[in-house]
Write a protein that binds this DNA or RNA. Structure first.
Lengths: 198, 198
DNA sequence: TATTTTTTATGCGTACGCTCATATTACTAA
DNA sequence: TTAGTAATATGAGCGTACGCATAAAAAATA
């Protein structure tokens, strides 16, 4: 958890509850709040004119999202959509900036978070830019395994659909399904009744 | 310029000069210094086992590079190679961390820088993941035009080779050349005697 | 100037991911 | 349990970027 919830509340943050599929904020709009996820999953996604989705990342409880505009004063770089029912806590932008100004260790935690975000994008970019579907998928899986433990709950089971993997690697569902079957046949991953273990 | 050179010198930073093609640091190695470019161009690149390059970005004078490990204590995510003769100034990691601790406005400048880096990667990822070569190239060009003015010196002339564009968009040189000729024919860009204006 | 290296350019065959279409299998809710 | 939806699976044809080869032009170097 980036910022302790009690601290956020002390600074005037408020809870907000949204249903599955609701748009929390949209790509290109102004940012007035710091958002931190309390429960549920948020999909952070770019949606194309023709409806194609590119999922930049999935956000788990405790993480923040849509934080870029807080620091560089730009617009939201992607849309945040409630993947399931979510509860989030939010704080006005100016208050947030004041908070990190007074709490240097929290400020540094955000610097570190951003560094990790860049790192993840580095990894995916070099993988997506040049490599075959299986490599793209492997890169994503190994990252999730390391950094997003919530997505492989018990027994390393993957909690993403093939469609979501496709939307994170820039591939078609069919390609992902076929590639993952190959990986299964080669013993790289285990698929049992549609479920992926890795 | 992220940090004033006189301030860096006051904190014990030292100059370093490297020739064209020299490796400043390598992907996967430990980071002990903050690096800021004084003159020349640095290529920040992932090199594959089979020699293929993916250029994460080109660094211009005044910018810093290889800063991720300073904040998240990881290893270098890419290699830095002198594209031409370069002079850089560097400061020991611990000293750097102390410096930003004492200068909150500089700390925030780095947070902002990282936010911008994430933003750029967002842009490229969604473009590379799904789109045709021409879109990938357009995305890169418009970014360079906006953020890296040094790469379109006078009259918006692009200072990157087709090969470098290929290495930044994950395409083949031939594909880039063919696509850019198309873009020229459609009037999107201007190519005169091999030089690109946009 | 001449010589070497780098960059741009073009042709051609192949591989592979995309598109579309259709089943089948797993969940979810009534 | 059944109905309805979502997810997984598989086939066939097509388009296009890739890979390789080669050549010309431009730039860098001597």
């Amino acid at each position: 958890m980036i910022i302790d919830i009690n601290l956020l509340l002390a600074w005037g943050a408020v809870y907000k509850k949204l249903g599955r599929g609701e748009v929390i904020f949209s790509e290109g709009s102004e940012c007035s709040y710091y958002n931190q996820l309390v429960s549920g999953i948020v999909r952070w996604v770019n949606i194309d004119d023709d409806g194609k989705e590119y999922i930049q990342t999935m956000i788990e409880p405790g993480e923040c999202f849509g934080e870029l505009p807080l620091f560089d004063d730009g617009l939201y770089a992607a849309s945040a959509i409630a993947e399931e029912e979510v509860v989030l806590i939010r704080l006005r932008k100016n208050t947030f900036l004041q908070l990190i100004k007074e709490h240097n260790e929290i400020h540094f935690a955000f610097t570190k978070l951003l560094a990790k975000r860049v790192r993840f994008k580095f990894l995916l970019l070099k993988s997506i830019a040049y490599h075959a579907p299986e490599v793209r998928i492997s890169t994503l899986l190994s990252y999730l395994k390391k950094e997003h433990k919530n997505f492989c709950a018990n027994c390393n089971q993957l909690k993403l659909t093939r469609q979501q993997i496709a939307d994170m690697t820039g591939l078609r569902v069919e390609t992902v399904i076929r590639s993952m079957r190959n990986m299964h046949d080669k013993g790289d991953i285990v698929i049992e009744r549609g479920k992926v273990f890795y």
